[in-house]
Amino acid sequence: MKPPPFHYYDPGTVQEAIALLGSLDNAKLLAGGQSLMPMLNMRYVLPDHVIDLNRIPELSHIDESEDRIVIGAMTRQREIERSEFLARRCPIFREALIQVGHRQTRNRGTIGGSLCHLDPAAELPAVLAALDATIHVTGPQGSREVPIAEFPAFYMTPAIELDELVTSISFEPWPEGHKSAFVEFARRPGDFAIVGVAALLATNDAGEVLRAAVTLAGVAAGPVRCSAAEEQLVGAGIGDDLIRVAAETCRDIDAMEDVHAPSSYRQHLAAELVARAVQAAVDGPGAGLSR
């Protein structure tokens, strides 16, 4: 299995990349390559042109702001996983990323690549949906912002034009000390998850939930927001009964069916894993990994 022949470009700036993207037909952007390279090796994709984004330094950064955190699209998954700032201000990234592929793939894989490849089972889009992230996109007409909820157009297809590229992702961090967890079920560590859950909770001193975000990976083309579960959680004191009631709202969600699992099993996992994720968030850092 070898990649098909293509013309290769490695621009040094976003502007050069966009100029190439706008002038070449049947071009593919190469980010971390942990999905595109297998697809090239297997010749699922046959691009005439490959535009490598790995030599564009301006696309790789983590802006450590308390107001709005910005992560460059080409920032490696491992850099995000190992960022002490994010571990403190947004610990769900580390917990989710430890479950993404393997160390060897996370050393290359990027946040923008995961987002644009948009595998239904991918962890990072679910995390970004829970954070209500904004996707920053640049094209020949300039830059624009796409809310994460509008980013998936359909199966494995982001709502951006062929001559646009994602430059960064930004979001407002939750209050310091907020609770979070990422829980998933996969057949083996590092495999694609059948269902994954991102949960964020902000509570007051009395343990009442002030704000909740719960999203699912693996049930539909893009991340699914569990609004009913969030509504159950907000305003109440966390306890076993509340967690169960909130989780049960996910039992009748529309879930996709494929070779890995029927939709009924995904619905079951959604309810079960939402309960585990909320409990893990309450239990504290790292609790999601043992569930």
Partner: peptide, 19 residues
């Protein structure tokens, strides 16, 4: 096919030599 690239492991089947 795992090798170390600038000290970090990577799948050498998922990288182009030009990279």
């Amino acid at each position: 096919c795992t090798v170390l690239v600038n000290g970090n492991t990577a799948r050498s089947c998922l990288m182009l030599a030009v990279q």
